[in-house]
């Protein structure tokens, strides 16, 4: 509550679009606390008409029991970490819930919330394209309005990356197979009217996550709680903020210093431009080219743009630059090309 108050002092004149309770297992919080937090928030900021309040939830039976109470506290959207519709793989992923529990929890969620989304992870170890097609078809038959479908990707510099480098991750599909799985996902979703509005997010029109769109459109957001990041424009400067990562240390810092913030730096125009492109090109809608030019003070090199256009990786339309479906699949390379 103190943190909400602290951050609101600089931003109270702004209008809040959304709140997202996420990270860890937020649905362990008592519904009454969620209600208190939302009340506090509304004391400090005006909120939009279609104010989105999302709660990340585990698909276990325990959480599902509280869904009604969460709804009464003000939550109107949930994002469920189902991960897989295959019990054996769920165990391998270290999840405690079963497929039946997940499906049951999804039903309860749908009865309570206006919008329900769930996550699946694919291109998993030892998963072939046919298995994924079956699993995805089952997922689509649930007719959720929003789904996050993440490929298991190995990124250098992460714990997963280290395991991979040490040869501990076997049976991962190769790049071509992953690309095929991605293509299949896209086309099956579109058959059902789910638009791939972001690299890994699919939604019926009007059901896109308002909250996440703020990240990708490079809007402002406040991070509250341990390890939360924010991007905040104050007096024409964009700040990147960060709070203490460990919950105990964060709590202590808030109590002693009156602030959980561990870092707050002003981003340079170039850094902002890079983040804007990096986030914005994840979206099907792409980036407003003029806004990029305003931020960075320069345009993209014509040769680079034409090179990427010739490869059918990006397209330019109505003042927007956007990745094509194939461009979005190799976004890291596109970014390296554009931002270097």
């Amino acid at each position: 509550m103190n943190e909400i108050k602290r951050v609101s002092e600089k931003t109270s004149n702004r209008i809040l679009n959304s709140v997202f309770f996420g990270g860890g297992t937020p649905s362990l919080i008592e519904p009454s606390i969620i209600g208190d937090v939302l009340n506090e928030i509304q004391k400090h900021w005006k909120t939009k008409n279609n104010f989105e309040v999302t709660l990340e939830a585990n698909p276990g039976s325990v959480d599902a029991k509280n869904f009604k109470a969460y709804k009464e506290a003000g939550v109107n959207r949930t994002s469920m970490g189902i991960q897989s519709l295959n019990t054996k793989d769920l165990k391998a992923l270290g999840r405690t819930h079963t497929v039946e529990e997940a499906l049951a929890a999804f039903e309860i969620a749908r009865q309570n919330f206006k919008a329900v989304s769930f996550d699946l992870i694919y291109a998993r170890q030892n998963q072939n394209i046919n298995q994924w097609e079956k699993e995805l078809s089952l997922a689509l038959s649930l007719e959720a309005s929003h789904m996050s479908l993440y490929q298991l990707t190995i990124e250098q510099g992460t714990a997963f990356g280290d395991r991979y480098n040490r040869g501990l991750l076997k049976g991962l599909p190769n790049d071509d197979t992953s690309a095929d799985m991605y293509d299949l996902t896209l086309s099956l979703c579109e058959d059902r009217g789910l638009v791939s509005y972001e690299v890994s997010n699919y939604a019926h029109q009007g059901y896109e996550s308002i909250h996440n769109l703020i990240y990708w459109r490079y809007g402002d957001y406040i991070g509250i709680g341990p390890g939360a990041h924010g991007r905040l424009t104050i007096d024409g400067k964009k700040y990147a903020t960060e709070t203490v990562l460990s919950p105990e240390a964060w709590l202590k810092k808030v109590e002693c210093d009156g602030s959980g913030e561990s870092n707050s730096v002003v981003l340079t125009d170039q850094q902002q431009a890079a983040e804007f492109v990096m986030m914005g090109l994840r979206l099907k809608e792409g980036i407003n080219y003029q806004r990029f030019k305003n931020l960075s003070g320069s345009a993209f090199s014509k040769t680079k743009l034409n090179f990427l256009k010739d490869l059918n990786l990006i397209e330019e339309k109505d003042g927007y630059i956007a990745t094509t479906n194939s461009g979005r699949k190799v976004l890291n390379s596109v970014l390296t090309e554009l931002l270097n």
């Binding site: 690309a179 990240y215 699949k329 190799v330 890291n332």
Partner: peptide
């Protein structure tokens, strides 16, 4: 040609790391 090279998850908390 490269066919797949994209970070699956990238939200508000990932911006700094990703940059």
């Amino acid at each position: 040609a490269l066919r797949k090279d994209v970070t699956a998850k990238c939200y508000g908390g990932d911006a700094t790391r990703k940059r």
